[in-house]
Each structure stands twice: as structure tokens, then as C-alpha cells.
């Protein structure tokens, strides 16, 4: 139903504008706050217009130290987060595309049983299995390391399931044509399957990158050394100052910096992302 009356248009615009306002206000406060001098938040009112400390605040946080209890600059935290998020994303995609390939295109005993076991791990996110996982990582001596941050989060039933659905929609004749064309399993995987699931990979990349970037609990538990802190978890520690004032201006800069990479990924891959979710490219 498409209505084209001026009143309904006005109303719908009004609702949308209110929505945008509600969503954008916190971001605006963070942006403005990041330019304020120290202590302006503690005066009791929230500033709504830019202060004059912008450049100093950003430079200090990025290159000197994050402030409060963190003695390392935020670019290091950014790097840690990036390594973790990319590691999780690429690892997840690699592992799940290979397992989906095995499940869909090969006949072996207990094939569907294995699929259902993988599927059941959907019910076991990190939070549920955190104690045994910690035990395993600690025994492997991977506390305070990138591999410790990444590995436990790599297995993904969701991605395996998505790739399985994607592969199952590939017509059998195409697989047979490739067999007649002399493409073995490995050639078929790289020449046909990977290019054909390009958009799905992109969509998963976006989702998984944001998932990896926003990890909070797991990095909080296994890192005790500043050099492996990730950005998202350290915002919290910037707020827990034993005595003295919270440096809100620095917190705001860090918050904005934490938001930027996911936004960049979403904006950059938007087209592919939508394509991957909507059509399966015939």
C-alpha cells in the first residue's frame, strides 16, 4: 500500500526525524564531549556544543596514554582489537566454509550426525562454556596472547549453517559439470565454490567483524596485561577509577574510536552485505 497524502508524508518524516534524533544524540554528546576540557562533565551539566580541547584530547588519547588507569595509548588498543576482530572473522569464515563444504559435498559416515553436533553448539556461546574454555586456554599457556583471544571464538555454528544453506542451493548439475571438466575437490572449492559464495562471505564478514570487535567478556577474563587489552573492554576500566575524577573527555574519544572501525566496515561493505543477505545470485 502506497499512500501519497501530504499529511501522512509529514507524519512519517516526523517519526523518522525523531528516531534519528534519539539514535544520534548519544553520538553527538560523545563527539562534543571529546572536545571538552577535563572536568567539564563533572560540573553537573552535559555540554552540547564543541569545546576547545579537541585536538589535544584526541592526540593525547591516541598517542600518549588512554588515561585513568590505562598507561598505554589507544592506538595500541585499536590494534589489539583489530587483530582480534579480524582473527575471529577470518578464522570463523575459513573454518565454517570448510566444514560446510565437507558436510554438503562429501558422503561419509555420520555426516548428518556431525552436522547436528555442530548445529547444537549454537546453544553453547562463550558465556556458557567460559570456565572450561578458560581452563583449556590457561593449560595451553595462551593467556595474554592473540591466539588466546581469538581461538575460542572461532568455531561458528551459525556461519557453518549459512554456508551449508548456500552450498545446498548450488545446482547439482553445476557440480557435475565441474567433475566432467576435470575439477577435483580442491579446484572445485577454489574455482567454483569460493567465487560463487563471495557475497555470502562478505555478509558474514560484516556480521562477524562486529561480533568480534564487540567482544567484552572473553578479553576481560583472559587478559591481565595492558598490552593485550582490547579497546571495547578498556572503556570500562577507564570508568572505574579508584579515586579522583573520571576523565570523561578521554573516555569519549576512546568511545568514538571504538565505534569507527565497525562503522567503516558496514559502510564499506554495505552493497555486498545487502546482496549477500538478499539474493543468492543465480
Amino acid at each position: 500500500m502506497i499512500e501519497n497524502r501530504p499529511w501522512s508524508r509529514l507524519l512519517s518524516h516526523l517519526i523518522l526525524i525523531i528516531g534519528v534524533f534519539i539514535v544520534a544524540l548519544p553520538v553527538w554528546v560523545a563527539l562534543v564531549g571529546s572536545t571538552q576540557p577535563e572536568g567539564s562533565f563533572n560540573s553537573g551539566s552535559i555540554p552540547l556544543w564543541f569545546g576547545d580541547q579537541g585536538v589535544q584530547n584526541w592526540a593525547h588519547v591516541l598517542f600518549a596514554e588512554a588515561g585513568s588507569t590505562l598507561q598505554i595509548p589507544v592506538w595500541h588498543l585499536l590494534l589489539n582489537s583489530l587483530v582480534m576482530a579480524l582473527g575471529i572473522t577470518i578464522g570463523k569464515i575459513a573454518i565454517s566454509i570448510i566444514s560446510a563444504y565437507a558436510i554438503v559435498f562429501f558422503r561419509f559416515p555420520f555426516r548428518s550426525a556431525i552436522f547436528w553436533v555442530i548445529f547444537m553448539t549454537l546453544m553453547l556461546p562463550v558465556e556458557v562454556r567460559i570456565v572450561p574454555t578458560y581452563q583449556v586456554i590457561a593449560n595451553l599457556d595462551m593467556l595474554n596472547s592473540y591466539s588466546g583471544l581469538i581461538l575460542p571464538l572461532i568455531a561458528s555454528a551459525t556461519a557453518t549453517f549459512l554456508f551449508r544453506q548456500c552450498f545446498m542451493s548450488i545446482p547439482g548439475e553445476l557440480v557435475e559439470a565441474a567433475r566432467i571438466d576435470g575439477a577435483g575437490p580442491i579446484r572445485f572449492f577454489f574455482d567454483i565454490l569460493l567465487p560463487m559464495s563471495r557475497t555470502n562471505i562478505a555478509a558474514l564478514f560484516v556480521i562477524m567483524f562486529i561480533y568480534g570487535w564487540n567482544q567484552y567478556l572473553w578479553p576481560l577474563i583472559i587478559t591481565t596485561d595492558d598490552t593485550y587489552y582490547t579497546l571495547v573492554m578498556s572503556i570500562k576500566s577507564m570508568l572505574s577509577v579508584p579515586d579522583g575524577d573520571i576523565q570523561w573527555n578521554y573516555v569519549m574519544v576512546t568511545t568514538l574510536l571504538a565505534m569507527l572501525p565497525p562503522v567503516a566496515v558496514v559502510v564499506g561493505m554495505q552493497k555486498l552485505f545487502v546482496k549477500g543477505l538478499v539474493d543468492a545470485e543465480k
Partner: peptide
């Protein structure tokens, strides 16, 4: 023998062309 080693070529009902090539 594998299909590729039989020296045959096949044309399928739905053509089975590789869509990305």
C-alpha cells in the same frame, strides 16, 4: 574411471554454466 578421464563431454538440461565466469 572418473568422468573427466572418460573423454566425454556433457551438455546439461539447465546448461550448468559457471555463473561467475
Amino acid at each position: 574411471k572418473e568422468p573427466a578421464d572418460r573423454d566425454i563431454a556433457m551438455v546439461f538440461q539447465n546448461y550448468a554454466l559457471y555463473p561467475h565466469m
